[in-house]
Structures are given as structure tokens and as C-alpha cells.
Simulated scan of single mutants.
Amino acid sequence: MPREHKDPRSPHQKIAADLRRLITRGDLTPGSKLPSTAELMEEHGGVANTTIQKALQMLKTEGLLEGLPGKGVFVRQHGQQPLEPMTFMTPAAPGEPYKWMTEATKRNQAGGSQLIEVEVVQPPLEVAKALGLEEGDHAVLRKQILTLDGEPTELTRSYYPLSLARNTAMMEKRRIRGGTPALLSEMGYPAREFIDELSSEIPTEEEVLALELPKDMPVLVAFRAVYSDGGFPIEVTLMTKAAHRHRMRYRMRVQ
């Protein structure tokens, strides 16, 4: 028997969670009209009108619903964006743009990136360990915001061993044609192995501001370590995405 546990959320949060799941999983399709307030009140055990309005407002703030005066409340045209990490792992070919841009174009979207910071830092402990750094060693941090159709979709913080990045374009605050994977490959450090750890976390203030997150919205954080020939670590990246806007898709073939 499972242990007894009570849902500590308020009624409007629980209703919003139910509706959110119907939207993100496709049971409520883009463009469809929600039942009336009276119908939603009855469906959810006779709750008050204000409870329903609070639930709907949460989902409007998240960008999942929109109200049209005199017509009702509708599911917006965009739900969760499925992303396949494998599609971004191969470096761009010489002269080609960053993979984020080309993959967005294939989906009829406009991909963009804004490089917001490049600095030499003492990396967080888990990053230092993954890069094989000694205590006191430094790394180069390149921080950027990725966008889809003009909306912030990912905060990316990439760390590179200072010994590897010194005197290269990675030290400069400018975008690199094809991205750093292409540059590293040209330098003789092709990516051979990726290890990803995916977690759902409460966002920091930096993540809330960068991704324009609504209140109480968790984020997906992918911690990726990249290794070149001989298991040599060349990069660690933390990729933070809004949980309500994305889902991760992994395609694996069993022999």
C-alpha cells in the first residue's frame, strides 16, 4: 500500500496542473476552445469562479492559453517543443552556421543566439571534476541565450579548460562560425563522447530573468560533458530550458 500523502497545492494550482498536462500531451490541441467557466467549475467539483480564473491566468502567463474577448479561452498554437540532443552533437561543417540555426530552419523556425558573457572563472566543483581540473585551475565560460522565433528558449553556460582555450577565439566575446564544437574539431579535438545528465530543478534568479519564466515554473537542466580522443575532456555545458516549453527526445537503436 502506498503511503498516504496530501497534495499541498492550492485548488487553482491543481486545476492548472491538470489542464497543463492535457495541453502539453496534446489532448487539448492548439486552437481548441476550453470549456466555459461554469463547465470547468462543475468538472472540478464545484469550485468557485475565482478558482477557475486563477488557474486559467496561470496558464495564460505561461503562454499556453490566450483569451479572446467575446469568444472564450483558447489553447495557443505552440505547445512543448520536442528537442533531440543527438541532432546538435555533430559539429557544423566548415563555413556552415551553428547547428542550432540550421536545425531550427528545418522545423520552419527562426533560431538565434545571443552571446552575453565570456570570462575566465573558477568553475563550479562538478564542472571542474568533469574537466579534470586541479584545485585552483580556471576555465573559460561562454554564456549565451538561444532563441526560437524570437523567444528565449535556453540559457547555455559552456566551460572549457583555460589551457585549451587560451589564445583562441573562445576567449573573445564574439560568436564563432559553426560554434565552439567546430573550432575544437579544427584544433584537433573532435568530440568523440557525450555524457548527459538531465534533471528538473527550481530555477535561479538568473535563469528566471534570462528565460522570462513565470512564477513557480521548474526548469530542465542538462549537464553535458564532452570528451575527445583518449577520453580527454574538452567541454562541460549546462543547458537550462523552461520545463513547460520543452520535452527531450532520445532516439536509441537496440541491436
Rank of each mutant, 00 (worst) to 15 (best):
E62R: 10
P94S: 09
T50R: 15
D27M: 04
Q53A: 15
D229F: 14
Q80G: 12
E4V: 12
M239C: 11
Q114I: 06
I52C: 07
E151Y: 02
P218E: 08
E119G: 07
A165H: 00
I52A: 09
A182V: 10
K99A: 05
R174N: 10
A191S: 14
A225R: 04
L133N: 02
M58P: 07
L198W: 04
E206P: 03
R25N: 10
R157H: 04
R142F: 13
E212K: 15
K129D: 13
V221S: 01
P123T: 09
E206F: 02
L22G: 00
I15P: 14
E207V: 01
E235S: 15
R107Q: 15
K99D: 02
P152A: 01
A48M: 08
R107V: 13
G72I: 03
T240G: 12
P30C: 05
P233E: 12
A104G: 05
R192Q: 12
G231A: 12
S36T: 15
P94H: 02
E117C: 13
K173P: 08
P85I: 10
L56T: 04
T24I: 14
R251I: 15
K241H: 11
D229L: 09
H12S: 12
L68C: 07
Y160T: 09
R3S: 05
H78N: 05
E4K: 09
R224E: 03
L28I: 05
V140E: 07
P161I: 03
Q80A: 14
E201N: 07
N49R: 15
M1P: 10
V73L: 03
L141E: 09
E135C: 04
G230C: 04
H44G: 05
R224L: 03
R166A: 05
E186W: 05
T29G: 00
R107W: 08
Y98H: 14
Q114V: 07
E172Q: 11
T105W: 14
P218T: 03
S113P: 00
V226E: 13
M252H: 05
H246R: 06
I15N: 10
M58G: 08
L65W: 02
P203L: 02
E197V: 15
E205F: 13
R76F: 00
R3M: 07
Q81P: 02
E39N: 13
T51N: 09
M170A: 09
E103T: 10
D137Y: 03
E135S: 12
L65T: 04
I202S: 08
E134G: 11
P85R: 12
S113R: 10
L133C: 03
G150Y: 09
S228E: 07
L59S: 06
V121D: 04
G79E: 03
M187G: 05
L213I: 00
V226Y: 13
R3Y: 11
A169G: 02
G46S: 06
Q13K: 10
K241M: 14
E212R: 15
S228V: 04
P82D: 02
F88H: 11
K241I: 01
Q122C: 04
V120I: 14
F232D: 08
Q114A: 06
P214V: 01
D27Q: 03
S32Q: 09
A93I: 01
T180N: 11
L22W: 00
L56F: 15
